[in-house]
Measured scan of single mutants.
Amino acid sequence: MVQRGSKVRILRPESYWFQDVGTVASVDQSGIKYPVIVRFEKVNYSGINTNNFAEDELVEVEA
């Protein structure tokens, strides 16, 4: 279970941040499909630095 402030590695192959490390900004408990919002240092092609992920697409590298 990841929690706010954890450092996580992204396992979603189609993601711009695949294999990159980001910080968990928040975790939604309402039961949505992609409840974990992760914030990154670098921006993607659209200038965005956050994205939603499912918990099984993340691996915690640092608490």
Rank of each mutant, 00 (worst) to 15 (best):
Met1Leu: 12
Met1Thr: 14
Val2Ala: 05
Val2Thr: 05
Val2Ser: 04
Val2Asn: 03
Gln3Tyr: 00
Gln3Met: 09
Gln3Glu: 09
Gln3Thr: 12
Arg4Ala: 14
Arg4Leu: 13
Gly5Pro: 02
Gly5Arg: 03
Gly5Ser: 02
Gly5Ile: 01
Gly5Asn: 05
Gly5Ala: 02
Gly5Leu: 00
Ser6Tyr: 00
Ser6Gln: 10
Ser6Asn: 07
Ser6Phe: 00
Lys7Ile: 11
Lys7Pro: 03
Lys7Trp: 02
Val8Gln: 01
Val8Ser: 01
Val8Ala: 01
Arg9Ala: 04
Arg9Trp: 00
Arg9Met: 07
Ile10Gly: 02
Ile10Pro: 03
Ile10Tyr: 02
Leu11Asn: 05
Leu11Arg: 03
Leu11Met: 11
Arg12Ile: 07
Arg12Met: 05
Arg12Tyr: 04
Pro13Leu: 06
Pro13Asp: 05
Pro13Cys: 10
Pro13Trp: 08
Pro13Gln: 12
Glu14Gly: 12
Glu14Ile: 04
Glu14Ser: 14
Ser15Met: 04
Ser15Cys: 10
Ser15Arg: 00
Ser15Val: 02
Tyr16Ser: 05
Tyr16Gly: 04
Tyr16Asn: 03
Tyr16Leu: 03
Tyr16Gln: 05
Tyr16Pro: 08
Tyr16Trp: 07
Trp17Gly: 01
Trp17Asp: 03
Trp17Leu: 01
Phe18Trp: 07
Phe18Asn: 03
Phe18Ile: 03
Phe18Glu: 04
Gln19Ala: 08
Gln19Glu: 10
Gln19Phe: 08
Gln19Thr: 06
Asp20Lys: 07
Asp20Arg: 05
Asp20Phe: 09
Asp20Glu: 13
Asp20His: 11
Val21Asp: 00
Val21Phe: 07
Gly22Trp: 05
Gly22Met: 04
Gly22Arg: 01
Gly22Asn: 02
Thr23Arg: 03
Thr23Asp: 03
Thr23Phe: 09
Val24Tyr: 00
Val24Asn: 01
Val24Lys: 00
Ala25Lys: 09
Ala25His: 11
Ala25Tyr: 09
Ala25Asn: 06
Ala25Glu: 15
Ala25Asp: 14
Ser26Ala: 13
Ser26Gly: 13
Ser26Asp: 14
Val27Cys: 08
Val27Phe: 10
Val27Ser: 04
Val27His: 05
Asp28Lys: 05
Asp28Val: 08
Asp28Ile: 09
Asp28Gly: 07
Gln29Ser: 12
Ser30Phe: 06
Ser30His: 07
Ser30Met: 06
Gly31Leu: 11
Gly31Trp: 07
Gly31Asp: 12
Gly31Val: 08
Gly31Tyr: 09
Ile32His: 10
Lys33Tyr: 06
Lys33Pro: 14
Lys33Val: 08
Lys33Leu: 11
Tyr34Pro: 03
Tyr34His: 09
Pro35Thr: 08
Pro35Ile: 10
Pro35Tyr: 09
Pro35Glu: 08
Pro35Arg: 09
Val36Lys: 00
Ile37Arg: 14
Ile37Phe: 11
Ile37His: 11
Val38Ala: 00
Val38Pro: 02
Arg39Thr: 13
Arg39Ser: 10
Arg39Leu: 11
Arg39Val: 14
Arg39Trp: 13
Phe40Glu: 03
Phe40Lys: 03
Phe40Cys: 06
Phe40Val: 02
Glu41Gln: 08
Glu41Thr: 09
Glu41Cys: 13
Glu41Pro: 06
Glu41Asp: 13
Glu41Val: 08
Glu41Trp: 05
Lys42Ile: 07
Lys42Met: 06
Val43Ile: 09
Val43Asn: 12
Val43Phe: 15
Val43Arg: 13
Val43Cys: 14
Asn44Phe: 06
Asn44Arg: 01
Tyr45Gly: 15
Tyr45Val: 14
Tyr45Met: 15
Tyr45Leu: 15
Tyr45Ile: 13
Ser46Lys: 13
Ser46Glu: 15
Ser46Asn: 14
Ser46Thr: 09
Ser46Cys: 15
Gly47Val: 01
Gly47Gln: 04
Gly47Cys: 10
Ile48Ser: 14
Ile48Tyr: 10
Ile48Glu: 15
Ile48Cys: 15
Ile48Val: 14
Asn49His: 07
Asn49Pro: 03
Asn49Thr: 07
Asn49Phe: 08
Asn49Gln: 07
Asn49Cys: 14
Asn49Met: 07
Asn49Trp: 08
Asn49Asp: 11
Thr50His: 11
Thr50Arg: 04
Thr50Pro: 00
Asn51Cys: 15
Asn52Ser: 14
Asn52His: 10
Asn52Lys: 07
Asn52Arg: 12
Asn52Thr: 08
Asn52Ala: 15
Asn52Leu: 05
Asn52Val: 06
Asn52Gly: 10
Asn52Gln: 10
Asn52Asp: 07
Phe53Ile: 01
Phe53Ser: 02
Phe53Asp: 01
Phe53Val: 00
Ala54Asp: 08
Ala54Arg: 12
Ala54Trp: 05
Ala54Glu: 07
Ala54Gly: 09
Ala54Ile: 03
Ala54Asn: 09
Glu55Leu: 15
Glu55Thr: 12
Glu55Met: 15
Glu55Phe: 15
Glu55Ser: 09
Asp56Val: 08
Asp56Arg: 07
Asp56Leu: 06
Asp56Met: 06
Asp56Ser: 11
Glu57Asp: 06
Glu57Asn: 02
Leu58His: 01
Leu58Trp: 02
Val59Glu: 15
Val59Gln: 14
Val59Arg: 08
Glu60Met: 14
Glu60Asp: 06
Val61Thr: 05
Val61Asp: 05
Val61Trp: 06
Val61Pro: 04
Glu62Pro: 11
Glu62Met: 11
Glu62Phe: 12
Ala63Arg: 12
Ala63Val: 13
Ala63Ile: 12
Ala63Cys: 13
